[in-house]
């Protein structure tokens, strides 16, 4: 079961804060759903800095980032 973070419609830096909280909780994989390219890039940058591997899928107007560790 993956952890799900719905960050759609939230403005920066809230998607990053929510994703960071999930990473700190330590349960992977984490699925983060965002709506803007800005949020996608910000979450990706933060997660990679935290040592996560990030894959991105585009679903219509939305992006789903999957964060895994090790």
């Amino acid at each position: 079961m993956s952890v799900y973070v719905d960050a759609r419609g939230l403005s920066c830096p809230q998607p990053v804060i929510l994703a960071r909280k999930a990473i700190d909780a330590g349960q992977f994989p984490i699925e983060v759903r965002v709506e803007t390219v800005t949020s996608r890039e910000n979450v990706r940058r933060m997660a990679e800095k935290q040592g996560c591997t990030v894959t991105v899928e585009t679903e219509g107007d939305e992006f789903v980032l999957t964060l895994t560790k090790e």
């Binding site: 759609r8 419609g9 939230l10 403005s11 830096p13 809230q14 804060i17």
Partner: peptide, 11 residues
């Protein structure tokens, strides 16, 4: 922001 401030979601 850290303590949970938000203006809510845009749609």
């Amino acid at each position: 922001l850290k303590s949970g401030y938000t203006l809510g979601r845009a749609s």
